[in-house]
Amino acid sequence: MIAVTGIGWLTSKEYGCLISKVNETHEGLGSLYSYFKHKSYFSSPVKNFGRFDAISKMTCFSTALALKDAGISYSSKHKQDIGIFGANKTGCLESNLNYFQDYIESGRILARGNLFIYTLPSIPLAEASIHFGLSGPLLHLLFNEKRIPSLLSFVGDSITGGETPSILAISAEETDAICFVLKQEDDISPGMNVGLQNVIAAAGETYTFDEMINAFKGIV
C-alpha cells in the first residue's frame, strides 16, 4: 500500500501544506523566493534561481512545501534515493516559444543556451532534484486524460514495482503547482498521512485547481 505523506501547493496568491494544515496568503510570486528563504522553506539558497523559467520556480516552491509537510529534511550535498515525476498541461510550450522567439529576434545569429535548456520538460524536475538532492528516477509525463490521477497512479505503481521507496509527484504550471510525497506504507514513520487511493479519488472528482485543493482538505 502507498501513502501520501506530504502535499505542498501554491497559487499566485496562496500557498499551503495540506497534511500539516498550513494555509497562508503571500504577496505575489515575484517576491516569494525571499519570503520562502525567510520562512526557512528553503534550507539553503537555490543556485541560479533567478534564471529559472516559471515552471522550474513553481516546481521548486511546491517541492519545498511538500518536503516540509512530510517532515523530510534535505541537502543538495547528501543525496536521497527519492524519485521525482512530473506531469503538466502543456509540457514546455511556453519555454519553447520564449527560446525560439529570442533566437529569431536576434537575427538567427546565436541562440541563448540558458533559454534552450528549458525546452526540455524534464528540466524543471532536474532543477528541483539538484537543489533538494533527489537521486532517484526522474521523468516528465504527459497523459491524454485525467492528468493528476494518472500521474499519482503511475507513481504509486512505480513504487510498488520496486523502482525506489519514495517518489515526488508534481504538477506545475506557471501560476499554480502541487507536489505530493508518496511512500510505501511500511516505510512510514508514525505521523499523519493519507492513503493514495483517497487522494486519487478526490483529484478525479474535481475540475479546477482550487476545487482540487478543497477536496484534499476534506480528506486529510
Binding site: 502543456t90 509540457g91 528540466i123 521523468l139 516528465h140 504527459l142 491524454n144 494518472s150
Partner: peptide, 26 residues
C-alpha cells in the same frame, strides 16, 4: 507542436484505443 497532439496521431495510425502517454527525460 505539443507531443500529446503527436501521440493522438500515432494512436490513430496504430489503430489502438487503450490510451497512451508521453515520456520525456531528455
Amino acid at each position: 507542436s505539443r507531443p500529446d497532439h503527436l501521440l493522438n496521431k500515432i494512436m490513430l495510425l496504430a489503430g489502438t484505443c487503450a490510451g497512451g502517454m508521453v515520456v520525456s527525460a531528455a
